[in-house]
Amino acid sequence: MEVVEIRVTESVLEASSGNEAQIEYVPYGRLCRSPLNARKKAPTGIEALAGTIFGNGLMQNLVVHPVKGSRAKQPKLGVCAGQRRLAALDLLFSQGKITKDFKVPVLIVSEGEAVSASLIENRERETMSRTNVARSGC
């Protein structure tokens, strides 16, 4: 039996205005791994996740921050939360299933908020129990 992982990420508030940040869609080609991601071990289960994303779309946004020193008109965005999803997108790209223009939902945060977002996402993870998997209603 394959276990499906469901993750809930807390909203990250923009410190400067106090308003909740909005999800934006950016081309896959702008994304890269962030050195600010709290998770340091290599992601696992990428092939299965890539298949799910290819078949159903990306159901949860990535959290990104502008990368310093990026000289392009559109600066690179470092993924500080969503390393497995980025790895799955990388695999889909290498297989020719998506292009650099593939639109990816992201929440753009400041560099200062990036570490907090990464810690929140990784700290609040909870493995689903068999009881949770069996429930399908509210």
Rank of each mutant, 00 (worst) to 15 (best):
A117T: 01
T9Y: 05
V104T: 03
K73H: 03
V26C: 11
N56D: 10
G69N: 15
E2H: 10
T52Y: 13
S129K: 02
L91F: 06
I98M: 04
Q95G: 07
L36N: 05
E2S: 11
C32P: 10
A38T: 06
N56G: 06
E126H: 15
Y28E: 00
Q60C: 01
K103E: 11
L86R: 01
R33E: 09
L36M: 12
L62Q: 05
A48M: 08
S129T: 14
A114P: 07
V115G: 00
G112T: 09
S136H: 13
I46V: 14
V106F: 05
G29T: 04
R125Y: 14
R7I: 00
V8W: 05
A134Q: 15
Y25K: 09
E47R: 15
A81T: 06
E5W: 06
A48I: 00
P66N: 15
Q60G: 12
F93T: 00
K97D: 01
R30T: 10
G96A: 07
M128N: 10
E2C: 07
R135M: 02
P105R: 02
E20R: 14
K40W: 03
K41L: 13
C32I: 14
I108A: 00
L31V: 02
V12I: 15
N56S: 11
Y28N: 01
F54R: 12
P75Y: 10
A48F: 01
S118Q: 09
A72V: 10
D90C: 09
V115T: 05
N132C: 12
A117N: 02
L58M: 11
P35H: 08
V4E: 14
A42W: 14
A38E: 05
Q74C: 14
L107Q: 05
Q22F: 01
A87V: 08
L58K: 03
K103I: 10
V3T: 11
V12M: 09
R7T: 07
L107H: 05
A117Q: 03
G78F: 06
A50R: 00
L13I: 15
I120Y: 09
L36C: 05
R33C: 08
P105N: 04
V64P: 04
K68P: 00
E113P: 00
K40M: 04
R123G: 11
V26A: 10
C80W: 07
L92Y: 05
